[in-house]
Amino acid sequence: MEGVGVTIAFWVLAALTLIAAGGVMVSRNLLHAVLFLIVTFIGIAGFFVLLSAAFLAMAQIIIYVGAIAVLILFAILLTPRAGRGNSETKFALPATLLAISLAAVFLFVIHDTDWEVVQEDPSLAANQLGEALVGTWVVPFEIASVLLTAALVGAIMLVRTPEEEAEDALA
């Protein structure tokens, strides 16, 4: 993709996303880590806009920033006496080494492969996504709705207190 604006946008978004992801890793306070995670989500949404997936960018903000981040914040609030520190386990060093080696393998593969690319924009509109979801991909779509229902019911059942369970028990 050519253009000064595109290049500036890409580098700014890449810096923002990666620095925020690093912030999730190194910040000492759990809530600061969540805020850095939100910045990462917004950076990824910016990437989606750059890659002509505007609808998915907005869906990413609505779902990740508007719902999942809020869910994480609620879980942090509902666990008040757990530590608010963002410290590491004793596997921190092997994990870091593993991640660095994995990144090295990925980067080598990415830059070594001869990618066969199209340069013009397929310019996919939101209605094509809708048609694909209820046309070709309708079975995964329905299974995803069943999955969401199962997750909803499961999450509610997991956090019931014994008093609430006793109310609804089949006596």
Binding site: L35, I38, A45, A54, F55, A57, M58, A59, I61, I62, V65, G66, A67, A69, V70, L73, A125, A126
Partner: peptide, 22 residues
């Protein structure tokens, strides 16, 4: 005049919630 303006509005309206929580 973006083609997904309505979803843009919905995305924007879920951001002040986070700011209020912060």
């Amino acid at each position: 005049d973006i083609p997904v303006a309505l979803v843009y509005f919905l995305a924007i309206s879920s951001l002040p919630v986070l700011a209020s929580f912060m």
